[in-house]
Computed example of a mutant assay.
Amino acid sequence: MLFKLQVDGIEHIPADGPAILASNHLSFSDSLFLPAGLERRVTFLAKSDYFTGRGLKGWLVAGFMRAVGQVPVDRSGGRASDAALTSGLKILRRGELLGIYPEGTRSPDGKLYRGRTGVARMALEAGVPVIPVAMIGTDKAQPTGQRLPKIMPITVRIGAPLDFSRYQGMEGDRFVLRSITDEIMYELLELSGQEYVDIYASAAKKRFGSVRAKTARVTELGASAQPETPQPKTSPTDPPAMPKAS
């Protein structure tokens, strides 16, 4: 009620059975507003850092994440990616809705970045449809670093399910996985109206971080530099000073 949450295309969410909800990722609150607009529970694969914090704050965050249906996964790559895939498949085989952010991390600047192929592997191995979902306004309501969201209208746009059964049995083909992932990202682009950037969001974050570090360093050096005391200049054509008469 406070955020006047509007959900467009809710008829595309199946009443039962498994499906993947593939969403753009603008804000931490995406994982709150998307389930809030649906009748069915959505389970998300969340980075394990949210579950390993220390102290009271860490305990509260971990408890909250579990309460809203988040499952911890290690997103460092390699074997961790296989573990995340296994966790997602377990959720789908239970007949549940699985929420995934194909970009892998939050967008650093509101643009849509290249998708990772894990969503395609899960869709083919589980034999389930992928439902594209676009979050609108969450980046303005709760930018990165802001603790509580600002009260303002939020929109969730849900697209028609994407059926990739024609690729069944080809989950080991990286070209097929890339094609499927790009198709999903194109649908997200159409739903969200974002500008698309064909690099991974994680790479973009590193670039932004590097630029910010360089800017901070230049500012620090500029502030610490002492201005030189100007010295009087003597023109080579000036006549030598004459002694005063006694």
Rank of each mutant, 00 (worst) to 15 (best):
G137T: 04
G137F: 04
G137Y: 01
G137H: 02
G137A: 01
G137L: 00
G137S: 07
T138Y: 00
T138H: 00
T138K: 00
D139F: 11
D139I: 04
D139W: 10
D139T: 04
D139P: 06
K140R: 04
K140S: 00
K140E: 07
K140H: 04
K140Y: 03
K140F: 02
A141D: 02
A141R: 10
Q142D: 01
Q142I: 02
Q142K: 08
Q142R: 07
Q142A: 09
P143C: 02
P143H: 05
T144C: 03
T144Y: 11
T144W: 12
T144L: 13
G145Y: 06
Q146R: 08
Q146M: 01
Q146G: 00
Q146N: 01
R147E: 10
R147S: 12
R147L: 14
R147V: 14
R147N: 07
R147G: 08
R147F: 14
L148W: 14
L148F: 15
L148E: 08
L148A: 10
P149A: 05
P149Y: 03
P149Q: 09
P149R: 01
P149K: 07
P149T: 11
K150F: 03
K150G: 12
I151C: 08
I151A: 03
I151K: 13
I151R: 11
I151L: 04
M152F: 10
M152C: 12
M152V: 05
M152G: 07
P153K: 12
P153R: 13
I154W: 11
I154H: 13
I154M: 02
I154C: 04
I154K: 05
T155W: 03
T155I: 03
V156I: 15
R157P: 11
R157S: 07
R157Q: 08
R157T: 10
R157G: 09
R157E: 00
I158E: 09
I158T: 14
I158F: 14
I158H: 12
I158R: 08
G159K: 00
G159S: 08
G159W: 03
A160N: 13
A160F: 13
A160H: 15
P161D: 02
P161L: 13
P161I: 05
P161N: 05
L162F: 15
L162R: 15
L162Y: 15
D163R: 09
D163A: 12
D163S: 07
D163K: 11
D163T: 14
F164T: 10
S165W: 05
S165G: 05
S165I: 00
S165C: 04
S165A: 04
R166V: 13
R166T: 09
R166D: 04
Y167T: 03
Y167P: 03
Q168H: 08
Q168T: 11
Q168D: 08
Q168V: 06
G169R: 02
G169K: 06
G169T: 06
G169P: 09
G169H: 02
G169A: 12
M170T: 15
M170H: 15
M170A: 14
E171P: 14
E171Y: 15
E171A: 15
G172N: 07
G172Y: 10
G172E: 11
G172I: 14
D173E: 06
D173K: 09
R174E: 06
R174P: 08
R174F: 09
R174A: 07
R174T: 15
R174D: 12
F175K: 13
F175R: 15
F175S: 06
V176D: 00
V176E: 00
L177Y: 06
R178A: 12
R178W: 04
R178M: 09
R178I: 10
